[in-house]
Design a protein around this nucleic acid. Structure first.
Ligand code: FES
Ligand code: FES
Lengths: 149, 149
DNA sequence: AGATAGCCGACTGATTGACTCAAGTATTAA
DNA sequence: TTAATACTTGAGTCAATCAGTCGGCTATCT
């Protein structure tokens, strides 16, 4: 039940871009350094995120990537589905793949359980937006500062 | 977010064993045929399940595998953790691995989300027992028969 | 003794994961 | 107009994991 580094890296990158929303395009290299991610690898992740409509980009000097929509409108679910596939833990409960049926469906109750799992995970990632992430980080940071003083 | 074939096959096999609880030891080959699974592969899965305390076995003629505990006391979580690793979607929220910390923890709100996901999945698989699975199957079958008549 | 069936370790092939690289194109600043 | 910047594209690499097989051993029952 792991998410891949793609999902990990992509969400970290988006978290970073959300924190720097309104600062114009941000180059891959800047994100990679702040989040400590391999730049050339991140490159292709951001590209697929762009193709998925989550990101937009600007080339050349002062170019970079930026969110195509405000942080409030981007969910983790969109990001995860874009870089990894569907959320479903097993093919026979995938939102796509509706044609392909499991041979044992009639005598198998596991399918229902996997569907529950899928729905539970979806419920979380589809309701958590980048804005929520930012809020949590700011809350954390504030708390840390308060205690430090 | 996929479960591997190990998790898939193991749960299918246990579902089968639970349905045939009280029938004494059941040979691998019988399970493999009923559930349409590769027998030699299933062999090693059942063995790890035995080492995990979920199954017991008897050798020789009329031997086979059987549940070490009644179906009511075996959860899918136990099975999944035995054949695949921990449920956590990412290493930094794994129940084990408590020493290893993520470099970015203080400026990363994703960790909390992955923890939510882990808890949501755990809640399902740790509360679903093989007995629940059997009940569901029997309910399904009954329904099917009712409609067929 | 012979048949059955689990136990154990090793081995393999294919796929996927996690990257890296080279060359190209658009944009801007000097 | 040239140079620098930075995204775009496609291909290539390397290792690990996955999914499964195989041979031989040991225990048990008839
Ligand atoms: S695993 Fe697909 S129906 Fe049981
Ligand atoms: S991913 Fe581990 S703390 Fe953010």
């Amino acid at each position: 039940m792991r998410i891949s580094t793609k999902g990990d890296y992509a969400t970290r990158a988006l978290q970073d871009l959300a924190l720097h929303y309104d600062e114009g395009p941000i180059p891959i290299e800047a994100i990679a350094q702040r989040q400590v991610l391999p730049a050339r690898y991140l490159e292709q992740l951001l590209l697929t995120l762009k193709r998925a409509g989550v990101l937009a980009s600007k080339r050349g000097v002062n170019g970079g990537y930026y969110l195509a929509k405000p942080p409030r409108e981007v969910t983790l679910g969109q990001v995860l589905r874009a870089v990894d596939g569907p959320i479903a833990p097993i093919f026979c409960v995938s939102e796509e793949n509706l044609r392909e049926h499991c041979s044992q469906e009639t005598t198998c109750a596991l399918r229902d359980v996997w569907a529950e799992v899928r729905d539970a995970v979806s419920a979380i990632v589809d309701h958590t937006t980048l804005a929520d992430i930012c809020d949590r980080i700011r809350a954390k940071t504030k708390q840390r500062i308060t205690y430090q003083i």
